[in-house]
Design a protein around this nucleic acid. Sequence first.
DNA 1: CTGAAAGCGCTTACAG
DNA 2: CTGAAAGCGCTTACAG
Lengths: 326, 326
Amino acid sequence: MRVTIADVAREAGVSKTTVSRVLNTKADVDAGTAARVREVIDTLGYVPSSGAVGLARGRSRTVAMLTPPLTWPWMGEVLQGVVDTVEAAGYGLLLFTCNRGAESVDHFTGQVSARAFDGLLVIEPENTLDTITAMHRRGLPVVLIDDRGHHPEFPSVATTNRAGGASAARHLLTAGRTRPLLVTGPAAFGCVRERTEGFTGVLPTGLVVEGEFTEASGRHAVEQALAAGMSFDSVFAHNDLIAAGALRALRDAGRRVPEDIAVVGFDDIPMARHTAPPLTTVRQPMRQMGETAAGLLLARLAGEPIGDEPVVLPTELVVRGSAPGG
Amino acid sequence: MRVTIADVAREAGVSKTTVSRVLNTKADVDAGTAARVREVIDTLGYVPSSGAVGLARGRSRTVAMLTPPLTWPWMGEVLQGVVDTVEAAGYGLLLFTCNRGAESVDHFTGQVSARAFDGLLVIEPENTLDTITAMHRRGLPVVLIDDRGHHPEFPSVATTNRAGGASAARHLLTAGRTRPLLVTGPAAFGCVRERTEGFTGVLPTGLVVEGEFTEASGRHAVEQALAAGMSFDSVFAHNDLIAAGALRALRDAGRRVPEDIAVVGFDDIPMARHTAPPLTTVRQPMRQMGETAAGLLLARLAGEPIGDEPVVLPTELVVRGSAPGG
DNA sequence: CTGAAAGCGCTTACAG
DNA sequence: CTGAAAGCGCTTACAG
């Protein structure tokens, strides 16, 4: 039915070995022979079976990615960066989310053991970092994409959380704001500590509320702060969802943004340009993080030595209506 | 190095055939023998090589998905639905976007010919529908997820665009709106015609502007309509991005939403609950579309006969502040 | 420059 | 109930 290397060999009057040599452009093949083989390959429309090649070579030319829920607002950018890079290298990308508890973790580890892929890209594996580390120790190439401030023993890509926090503070300071309210993510995350330190290093404040990375959390935090009679002229939110919640709470309370209170977020998710007013935020280069991580993994698979030092990408302040320039 | 079926066979004192039988739970294996083999499998931590199994069986237990840019606002939901379903069936999911022009299309078709996967899920393959159709004719199982109103010759999953448009119209009518402005997507799309027909069947209007599925397009359309002095008391946008642009244009023009003008969108993307005011919209069950399409493909791969009739999932009106109940 | 043969790690008739 | 052997479609020493 389907055309195999044997068909090509027969048709071209050579051995399978020679066809294989042509396929993999090894030296030491007569130019005429090679041309003839290539012609047969074309007319027959022959494409080597990836399964058979993988078995014979012991590598699948496929990498896997393990992600948090794909509905997170910045996942699309990261994923696109990864897919583009992986595709361009001629690799396939296998996607796992482990979204369904223990059963799906088993499915995933099974695929690892089954050698279904050559390397692994991981994004914020909240509960599986130990498992991943163990896999890495057993020889699976792994690269982590992380905005949570983990510090694994394998290569990773991160952003300048501290500098990002500082840039938000400088921006507010320049605009004349001196009494900021901080609404952070969970204190357990390294990125939360870094963003806070970067910010307070420039613009110290006693008004710090620990929240979660959700819109509801941001709304709640600001409602509470207002109810408690706290006096603040700006909000620095640890991500854009928190900031969106803050915007909503302020609007509901009749505070004007940015006249009464300026708001700065973190991430620059697609929604940030559609809030009212559009959100000033510290941009994380999500697509570039995906590209960089995929590039590292592919380099590692190609045998190039890559260090274990995290690659740190710069954040960038994006100024919009919620906190205009000073 | 890695443990193979031969290691298990040797250790258990049986043939590879018997180990294979146990692995695939065929009948006709002595209970005691089976138990012993299973024990050896456990202690050795043996997992069959997916590549070798695939080669021997001629199927890879992997499906592929070909998607538009992953940054589209509803891709996360669809993808999550697909991944969950595919993982639960013990299949792997290979992701392709063909985002980089001809080269990436070649990469993709190469993987098809290489039999890297058993079946294909496609989402809105704007320029590749012919290619996909040809692949389907040559025997590749394909299922389409579509909100653009294509009508392929293979199974597909769609939503009730016409009923969705009608529900938007009924909602506005009940709220006392009689002069709606329609901002549609490109007229070439089947879904655009259906949404328009559904809407105007209930609430006829002469104010129809053809746009694109973007925020900028929605903003522009409403700005033009206002500048032209059109008089309307509501906007029905063909997707939520258009609606978000309309909200912005109305706000910038000093029109109050919903008091002066009510706005209804389509899709219910995550952003819809964060606009100001939050968007009333016709919800498409994106995750369920992903689950359904994946389920169809898996059923087909399992040998169950599935018809070529499109599976049509119901839309649902979600009422929020931009167009409250009447 | 080229080919016969073994091997990658499984499954599947076939025979007993 | 069980095993020897062939086969899936490639690659890779090895020999010439």
